[in-house]
Amino acid sequence: MSVTYGLTTRVATVNSHHIELLLQANGRTMNDVFSMLFGVFLILGTAVGIVVISYMVYNAYKYRETPDSEVAERERPQLGELPQGSGGGKKLAISLTISAVIVIALIAWAYIVLVDVEAGAPESEDPLEVQVEGIQFSWQYEYPNGHTTNTLRVPEDRPVTLILTSGDVFHTFGIPAYDLKADAIPGQTTETWFRPNETGTYEAQCFELCGSGHSAMESDVIVMEQEEFDQWYAETGSETNATTNNTTDGSATNNSTANDSTATTTENRLLDGPAPERQLAATTRQ
């Protein structure tokens, strides 16, 4: 999956797959949900914008002053009169009702979707849990075996739960390619999850101004095939191998700390490959 940018790409990616998702009762993930909602909001928003602005410009043109405008056509405001309105309350009420219905329907739908994805990574699929700590100006990832690194390596097609906090100031962790974002707050933990669906190297970034190095507070996210990941993960059990691995992955620094726990088989259990459309999801919750 290549990282794509731009509004047009977003709209273009709304396809029949998303229409199916609309009708699907559950199993939706954040990445799908975002593309779908964003596409629908864009289309409706553009339509509403065009209608309202056209109506506004049309009326401005239609009722412009012309040499043959009838001055005494109707009663006009007088200097010094007590401020008062002209009628039109009914028309206003209808317009408001229409716009309220559109907005409330959209938001209600978005809310149902929210509740759906807010539940977190499905426990049945044994998500990989990684602790993420933001420190000016890098991200540290700690695996269940105690291995610590600056590059997030995750297996393909297995849910990953990220538990975030900050070692210093307020940061926001985000992986744009996976529509994933959560605050990293000192003294607090937030949780989010996603399901990497395609191997490759992505970028994680800080989204809250955190000091002089904010613009460069990035790290690589490497999605690996399951076996490759298992192999790498097993090697992180011993300190020497951890160091080797981290230098080969090309990350700038290696803050691996000595650790004594080793990878357990449960952590590395292979999963059944999930349906391809169930890509990933992100959520923050208490």
Binding site: L114, V117, K181
Partner: peptide, 17 residues
């Protein structure tokens, strides 16, 4: 209109920042 996007929590997750 673009503000309504931000009112939908799911979109706000991604659009924030």
């Amino acid at each position: 209109i673009t503000g309504v996007f931000l009112g939908a929590v799911v979109l706000d997750y991604q659009l924030r920042g």
